[in-house]
Design a protein around this nucleic acid. Structure first.
Lengths: 95, 95
DNA sequence: AAAAGCGTAACCCGTTACGTTGCACTTCGC
DNA sequence: GCGAAGTGCAACGTAACGGGTTACGCTTTT
């Protein structure tokens, strides 16, 4: 169970990848092989990191694709957990 | 980096949740609050486990939603990694 | 044989990632 | 002041996917 709101994975990209290398969104998008808008959407929290994008990031920044996608998973899961009480689900476990 | 093809998360649901409790797809779907088809699609690998479904599973089977969604992430990532070489991405890291 | 329950394929809908184009805004250098 | 570059954003379209409803085939039960 996660305790606090995880940041947009896009923020992490901006802070850990673009800013240290002084890369513009345009340049980074070009290098990643996606459109400017696609990267911009991710950085601004409008879109999530897709599995393919995770692989692109891993190539461009020599990191692990798993870490990127896990960040996105944690973020999505936190969103879903916020509505846990609204789900009408019966307990099916051995109990 | 993952070494071998991870199983469909749906297979795990079937083997670890339904069969031990002798639950039919219909009964399990009813308990989870989704349609028969939705659960059937997951079990047969046609659909993945969504964040919301992960929370449903965690409630119904008293497990962690994180583990379910991570399984899905690993599966999706393995699929994406299979096309790693086809992506035209430039190295942007310090190197 | 008729009825009931089960699993799944077919079809439609809403959402999302992604691309393209265009526009408005800011920040530079001239 | 002016143009170029960078950025964000809205609107269009495409493709893929999760989910519901319906309908069909199969098995089991009565």
């Amino acid at each position: 169970m996660l305790m606090h709101n995880p940041p947009h994975p896009g923020e992490v990209i901006k802070e850990l990848c673009l800013e240290p290398l002084e890369l513009s969104v345009t340049k980074a998008a070009e290098g990643l092989g996606v459109s400017r808008k696609t990267l911009s959407s991710i950085i601004n929290g409008k879109s999530g990191i897709s599995p393919e994008m995770a692989v692109r990031l891993s190539i461009a920044f020599d990191t692990s694709s798993e870490s990127w996608l896990n960040q996105q998973t944690q973020y999505d899961l936190w969103q879903a957990e916020q509505h846990r009480k609204e789900l009408r689900v019966k307990r099916l476990s051995a109990a």
